[in-house]
Design a protein around this nucleic acid. Structure first.
Lengths: 133, 133
DNA sequence: CCTACCTACGTAATGTTATTACATAGGTCA
DNA sequence: TGACCTATGTAATAACATTACGTAGGTAGG
């Protein structure tokens, strides 16, 4: 029984829209796509996203103000390090990966400096392999 | 002869405002602070920031839509790795540091996946040592 | 010299992203 | 039943950023 069974109607709609998408979507893009389903105001999207971000099934990409479903599916076993997002500025596709080594370096700095980290965001911008010719 | 000697009036005003600040500032906060100096429109701030970001003397913090002067002063010899920003959500102060190990991990992934990185952003959110009681 | 061009700058309008405030609907439980 | 909690609906506004257009000053080539 995964988390998605607990989702409300609006949350499910937002999540499935993100899962269908090949690229990250902005909140207002989601709103437009969901108008046929009865969405009429930004808040409906933001409220759904808030919950989805909390549970980790959706990520927010700060550098482009957009949202994407977590690549790692229903099993959120990426305790294998911090998530890193590589955003292609040509095709807008995003690769998500996790790196234990980076996690460790950040944790070391945090410990050494008494910083208590609650959230980590790592975003690479550039060109993906397909778009680099 | 450092880069700042090439700055225009508006660029100098924005930079010195950021250097005086103890926290990151939003573009509109800068605008308000610079009104006494003749600033009247957002674009004046954004244009100055654009140049300052290009030359690296100012950083943008994507997760809070704010800008700060580079901690590393005039000598931009932080080819010692990617910059990491640790943002305290209580006092809003930011620690900037560089980590060669993280750079290497990211470079390895990029090489292995044919991703050509043009910009890297790493931001930690949490509580700094002073604010953790 | 002057004109074509380039860069910086000024101003207004608009576009995009996100939040606050307040009202409504439905379920749970004492 | 009625107090409470969660989800939702709607409107208005705040916060962040860009586009479009016009002006001023310098300078390189004719």
């Amino acid at each position: 029984m995964d988390q998605s069974t607990k989702l409300t109607k609006n949350q499910s709609l937002v999540l499935s829209q993100l899962q269908k998408a090949t690229n990250p979507l902005s909140a207002y893009a989601l709103l437009d796509q969901l108008r046929p389903h009865g969405f009429r105001a930004p808040l409906q999207v933001y409220r759904a996203l808030e919950k989805l971000l909390e549970t980790g099934v959706v990520h927010r990409l700060d550098s482009i103000n957009a949202f994407m479903a977590c690549s790692h599916g229903a099993d959120h076993n990426h305790h294998h390090g911090v998530a890193v997002f590589a955003i292609c500025e040509t095709c807008n596709q995003v690769s998500e990966f996790a790196d234990e080594g980076i996690s460790e370096r950040l944790a070391q700095w945090a410990k050494a400096n008494g910083f208590h980290t609650t959230k980590t965001g790592i975003e690479l911008r550039g060109q993906c392999a397909s778009c680099t010719q």
